[in-house]
């Protein structure tokens, strides 16, 4: 229901998330409406959960009302039930590529570096993505300058290429980890 910008801010505040936060914002609530979950009189979306199998068929739909809260253990059980009962709809499922041998260059006092670091933590990539702090480590700074052609951090070095924008870094970490 919020805009892309609000979502980006929220996601950064939570430290990066592995699932897409979708902006059902323009026209407002159009997708929620298609699912019968837009509360037009309040101008908000219901707090509801819909699980769809890989054939596009709804396998679960429930609401806890906007003021309610979801039971995370129950959601996990619902997911497991769909996995168990509808795995036949997943013929083309492939494991995500994953990440190995990446280096994340960061600097102190930098919100963009913090965002990239939090995404690494949240995606459980501590072992796969080595961190080098260019504020504390002259050798790391020299390495960054050689790889990127400039002393800009954060930077993600992976497979011979370097990314210098935190949103690109997070997108790469997410897509390699999740497969999309």
């Amino acid at each position: 229901m919020d805009s892309v910008h609000c979502h980006a801010n929220w996601a950064a505040g939570m430290g990066g998330i592995s699932f897409p936060l979708l902006a059902d914002f323009h026209p407002k609530g159009a997708v929620a409406g298609a699912y019968g979950l837009y509360l037009a009189e309040k101008g908000i979306t219901d707090r509801a959960t819909v699980i769809i199998d890989a054939d596009g068929v709804v396998r679960h739909a429930s609401s806890v009302t906007p003021a309610g809260s979801r039971d995370i253990a129950e959601l996990a059980a619902l997911c497991e039930a769909v996995n168990r009962n509808h795995s036949g709809t997943l013929p083309a499922a492939e494991a995500p590529p994953g990440i190995t041998g990446a280096t994340l260059f960061v600097k102190n006092g930098c919100g963009f570096s913090r965002t990239a670091l939090l995404a690494r933590t949240n995606l459980h990539l501590e072992a796969a993505v080595q961190v080098k702090n260019v504020s504390d480590d002259p050798a790391a700074l020299a390495e960054l300058e050689q790889l990127a052609g400039k002393a800009q951090a954060p930077a993600l070095a992976l497979g011979g290429s370097v990314q210098l924008e935190s949103v690109d870094i997070v997108r790469t970490l997410v897509s390699k980890t999740t497969g999309f």
């Binding site: 229901m1 919020d2 609000c6 979502h7 801010n9 929220w10 929620a32 699912y35 979950l37 908000i44 979306t45 219901d46 707090r47 509801a48 959960t49 819909v50 699980i51 769809i52 199998d53 890989a54 054939d55 596009g56 396998r59 906007p66 979801r70 959601l75 997911c79 769909v82 996995n83 509808h86 709809t89 997943l90 013929p91 083309a92 499922a93 492939e94 999309f180």
Partner: peptide, 16 residues
């Protein structure tokens, strides 16, 4: 885009 490859869970919520 997830047809045939993923089940999808949609978590609708009122506001960020």
């Amino acid at each position: 885009q997830f047809r045939g490859t993923r089940h999808v869970m949609l978590l609708f919520y009122p506001l960020d």
